[in-house]
Amino acid sequence: MSRLSRTLGTLRDEGRGALMAYLCIGDPDVATSVEGLVAAAQGGADILEVGWPFSDPVADGPVIQAASERALRHTRRDDVIGAVTRLRARTEQPIAVLSYCNPLLAGGLDETLRALADAGADALVIPDLPLEEAGAWREAAAACGVSIAPFIAPTTDAARLPEIARAADGFVYAVALLGVTGTAEDEEETILPVVEALRSYTQAPVLAGFGIRDGASAARWRRRGLDGVIVGTALVAAMEREGPVGVRNLVRQIRAGIDNLG
């Protein structure tokens, strides 16, 4: 069983919600961003999400766009892979790498996936890779022992759910709202019927991302029956304001929100 499945399985057995913490590698510099993810682990994050900065992040809002721009002034491919290596050495938590398609393709897909797996990555989150395009990617990832998390969104057609369920070998990433990362949460909760429909095809944990910024909003998604939450924009903003200490404090607060249901 993979490190990721073990972690998620244990959380489910204990009745606890999962917390995945995102930071953009290289913002403000590679070393500090690694410290930020270590701080997130200390603060109670269950999965560390390593953000690979990209010049054209179409699924991201202004906060992560700006972090990516800052990072790209000095962050190269090997820095991202090196960050995974360092995190693997310093933390126990599973590591998911968030990258858009093109940086993964540029050095050769197989080579890049192999390098990430060797560095200690457990999963990939690729926001511009829908299931229809993922075939060859999933095979290449599986060959390296890395999973690719499939997405669901409020607009996902029910007809696609069985296949999405089949692809869920780690967790399913539920885009909680219509919009980019960091969008203010709306009250429509339109993702919930999609999550419910998905549950009839798979037991895989479903984590909600986009718009979750504090203990209260994390607790809300937990109460709605999600297996966990993914927090990115709020942590990137905390890093910008207060560095790794700010990241640790916010992760602690969100952890408390999930565990005590706010």
């Binding site: 969104a153 057609d157 885009v175």
Partner: peptide, 15 residues
């Protein structure tokens, strides 16, 4: 070619 877009847009592209 292809459809390398966020999941949110897949339904709209199919429609």
């Amino acid at each position: 070619g292809g459809q390398f877009v966020p999941e949110t847009l897949m339904a709209a592209l199919q429609e």
